[in-house]
Design a protein around this nucleic acid. Structure first.
Lengths: 336, 336
DNA sequence: TTGTACGCGTTATCAA
DNA sequence: TTGATAACGCGTACAA
């Protein structure tokens, strides 16, 4: 059905080698032959079979990106950045959502072994199991992590300084006079949460307020934020500020604050994490830690391509800048 | 480096054909040989080269999904549904964001020609150009559309009844006593907007209020919603209700309502479209038209696989149910 | 500058 | 039930 090099060669009256050379561009071909070949390509609508090419060249021009939840805008923004960088370099992204029950554990690690892609980026902390040995064997294996930083993993990575960012947010709340601060985390087994929690604790300690911390964990969803805020606000010694480890959590928490008949920031201050697009537009506009999501995705791809295309000489752990964005959802602690 | 069938065959002391048969599963193989083969596979860590397989079988087990903006939660939710259905059927998704400047026009259509994937789903209205002729030639070409319905396109599709849904939302506003209604659309060249606008107009006409419609268009973003609401609320004859063609638009509009010193739903009612996850949690909770995003993605994949795997006999245009979800952002029109 | 011919790793056909 | 072998489409030595 579809035309092959042989068809093109026959129609142009040349050999298949000449066709390939013409299409490759860099080799020497007479203007006359080139023209004949291009014409044949045109009339036949020829497009090289990528599978045959990959089989031969050991290159696919594809990158796998695995993600805990594609419908989470934090991750989909990172993917947008990755997609842009990949497209610019002539690569395509194979998407993998790891949270789905049907993911048979190690599908995407296997795909790398099967040469379906030239490299893999995993967002979050779930390194595909079958890649462990690969990484152990080859420090410059084409695997990059986004969002987290686990030195022990032995892969290049792109992330912000989560501990420092969390500490900054807490400092801000303490400076506003808050003493009892509630912290709403994502899943505790997630290293990113541990990093942020470390930042929270160090700030609390620096202010001598460790004992006044109230910590809850769940997942990063709006629903979780609403529920955990309920627990915290039901306490007899209610916090006057909530620091949430995602903006979704914060939006859920704000909902609970209103439901409880309290006002933000009058009674309760709320701070988030990520600075997703709606955060500036909700009521009240959300104080939050901005992460450069698109940049994380773009840099991760760049790092991976450096490895794949042989430019990398060592592991790189890239820390991108974050920024505490002050908006109306945080204010002075209420005086009693 | 990586083991091949030949290696496995040699180690197991059988032919390559037997290895393939063993791994395929359905063919007849002695328990004894099977065991030997599996052991060899294990010790060598053998995984079939997918490129060689695709070259031979003309199957890639990959599906391309193109999307106007992956960081838009409406689309990423659809993709989540698509990913789930694809994984369940043993397929992987190749993601393509079409909005990026670097997308050289027809990359993803070409990929289908190059046999990089078995089929393509395009969300939105941008059918990859090079696929037009394919579709014209073969009515059952492996191409499916999500979200839109353009009968003239000649492809199977999954979508809601956008006109009916929009009409329902307008009916709701009119029943609350609103007369001057502002409509905030996405991009007017987008057919989905035209469908919804048709629904809006038919409802207005049915209520004899066509002349009182105020219509603005932009894109589907929060920022656009805020800006267009400003225009509408600045009018001397201000609308008492706003119907936005996405929840993001509505969130932007709500922001402007507050900024203007008006209250929702006291002074202005606001309705959205999509029912994204945060819509129930913002202030006030948003009245909106719920779309079954995950289902749209899942069904689109199912439709595509029916074509690819030869079960489809004709084009199918699937209309999924929508639902008008009433929340606190809409209320009776203010009385003067 | 162009052509010939081989091999990439797999699956499928045919014969044993 | 198993084995030998051809073919998928391409890129690239090597020869001309």
């Amino acid at each position: 059905m579809a035309a092959t090099v042989t068809d093109v060669a026959r129609l142009a009256g040349v050999s298949t080698a000449t066709v390939t050379r013409t299409l490759a561009g860099y080799a020497h071909v007479t203007a006359r032959t080139r023209e004949r070949v291009m014409k044949a390509v045109d009339t036949l609508g020829y497009a090289p079979n990528q599978n045959a090419r990959s089989l031969r060249t050991l290159r696919t021009q594809r990158l796998i990106v695995t993600v805990p939840d594609i419908s989470n805008i934090f991750f989909s923004s990172i993917i947008l950045g990755a997609e842009a960088a990949a497209q610019a370099a002539g690569y395509t992204i194979l998407l993998g959502d790891v949270s789905l029950a049907s993911d048979s554990g190690d599908k995407y690690g296997q795909m790398l072994h099967r040469k379906e892609a030239d490299g893999l980026i995993f967002l979050g902390h779930t390194l595909p199991p079958s890649l462990r040995s690969l990484i152990a064997r080859d420090p410059l294996a084409p695997v990059v992590n986004g969002c987290e930083f686990s030195p022990s993993l032995g892969v290049s990575s792109v992330h912000i300084d989560n501990a420092a960012a969390a500490a900054e947010a807490m400092d801000h709340l303490y400076e506003l006079g808050h003493r009892r601060v509630g912290v709403i985390m994502g899943a505790p087994e997630n290293p990113i949460n541990r990093d942020r929690l470390a930042g929270v604790r160090s700030s609390a300690e620096a202010h001598g307020l460790s004992a006044a911390l109230r910590i809850r964990d769940g997942d990063f969803s709006v629903e979780s934020g609403a529920r955990l805020a309920q627990e915290l606000l039901g306490d007899s010694e209610r916090p006057t500020a909530l620091f949430c480890f995602s903006d979704d959590l914060a939006i859920g928490a704000l909902h609970t604050v209103r439901e409880t008949g309290l006002s933000c920031p009058g009674d309760i201050s709320v701070a988030g994490f990520d600075d997703i697009r709606v955060s500036a537009f909700i009521d009240p506009p959300l104080t939050t830690v901005r992460q450069p999501m698109r940049d994380i995705g773009g840099k991760a791809v760049r790092l991976l391509l450096d490895i794949i295309e042989g430019r990398a000489t060592s592991l790189i752990n890239l820390t991108l800048p974050h920024e505490l964005v002050l908006r109306a959802s945080t204010g002075p602690a209420p005086s009693y």
